[in-house]
């Protein structure tokens, strides 16, 4: 063990002496390792330094590009995250509360429909879920629709039928923008599906208007402050105030009650199949659970012989020596 370091240093010293002979400027030193370090040529140091700089630089450049926290969607740009409300109809085996749907449709008709269209919903789909046939027929007849061209090619007007779609407040998007200071009130048919947060977002938006914008918030002229709206500046002003509509079933029409009802109605408009879907899902899960249990039993039954068998190894009896 003692001889080993001595053996190792001998070649190093030889190399050091050789390099010393070549580069005369270098000073000789006593220890072998420092001699080796000082004796390395200039270009080696340069290469190592350059490689280090490149390595650190590329890491820094990569971190600069991808490593930092992205501030593309600040809370202000994204909007406040909506509160998670315990919606009864979000539960697995709960239908819509159809009384609430009826109230929500009333709120839509009396409040929202002055600006927002609901053009994917025909009157017939409201029949049997929200209103009776007679009510919907009467409602449809209040509006006029274009007929097919007659013999002279003229398009006349006719009263609405159950198969007609709920009329939009404006003729087209341009008219809607012109009437609303350049802002387009979006169609509400699929709005619950179209926004992150769904019901929670729309409810928070409707009820989240503060009395006045908080200190430091900048609100453009013509816009209103709402923390839940991405960008916080929303063209729609607060519309739901207590007692705005009078419910036919006597429910107190507070702002939050109206918002809850209209959100549930919009959820129905976006997912009219939800009740049947959940009912069918319950049946499918029941049958699926039964079949799964059956398959587990069959597997255990078929494998029982394999699992309970005993393998015995009998070594061959060799010839006696």
């Amino acid at each position: 063990m003692l001889a080993m370091p001595a053996l190792r240093t001998v070649p190093a010293r030889v190399v050091a002496r050789q390099t010393l002979r070549k580069s005369t400027t270098r000073a000789a030193s006593s220890s072998s390792s420092s001699t080796e370090a000082t004796s390395s040529p200039f270009y080696t140091t340069l290469t190592a330094s350059a490689a280090t700089v490149v390595a650190i630089g590329s890491v820094a450049w990569y971190y600069h590009l991808y490593g930092r926290e992205a501030f593309a969607m600040t809370p202000q740009e994204e909007g406040l995250h909506p509160t998670q409300y315990p919606w009864e109809h979000y539960r697995w085996v709960k239908t819509f509360d159809h009384q609430a749907l009826r109230r929500g449709f009333q709120v839509y008709r009396e409040v929202c429909s002055s600006c927002h269209s609901l053009k994917r919903i025909p009157y017939r789909s409201l029949v049997g879920t929200i209103a009776t046939v007679d009510e919907m027929k009467a409602l449809a007849e209040e509006n006029e629709y274009d007929t097919e061209p007659n013999d002279e090619g003229e398009i006349e007007k006719r009263p609405g039928k159950l198969s007609d779609y709920i009329p939009s407040p404006y003729k087209n998007d341009e008219a809607a923008r012109a009437a609303n200071n350049g802002a387009l009130p979006p169609d509400l048919s699929l709005m619950v599906k179209a926004r992150h947060g769904g019901c929670n977002y729309i409810f928070s938006l409707l009820t989240g208007y503060p009395e006045e914008p908080p200190a430091g918030a900048t609100v453009q002229s013509g816009l209103n402050f709402n923390p839940y709206f991405p960008g916080t500046g929303i063209a729609m002003a607060r519309v739901l105030y207590d007692g705005l509509v009078e419910y036919e079933d006597g429910t107190p029409a507070t702002a939050s009650q109206m918002a809850k009802d209209v959100v549930e109605f919009l959820n129905w408009a976006a997912e009219p199949e939800m009740d049947n879907r959940k009912k069918m899902g319950m049946k499918v899960l029941t049958i699926g659970a039964l079949l799964f249990a059956l398959s587990v039993w069959v597997k255990r039954y078929k494998w029982s012989t394999v699992k309970t068998r005993q393998l015995v190894y009998n070594p061959p009896v060799g010839p006696k020596r």
Partner: peptide, 23 residues
């Protein structure tokens, strides 16, 4: 399953409130 479903959702479906609005 329909009976179970209707019991879970008693009072929430249209058929439960229909009688209030039918003429």
């Amino acid at each position: 399953t329909d009976a179970i479903w209707n019991r879970i959702n008693k009072g929430r479906q249209w058929k439960d409130i229909k009688h209030r609005y039918v003429q």
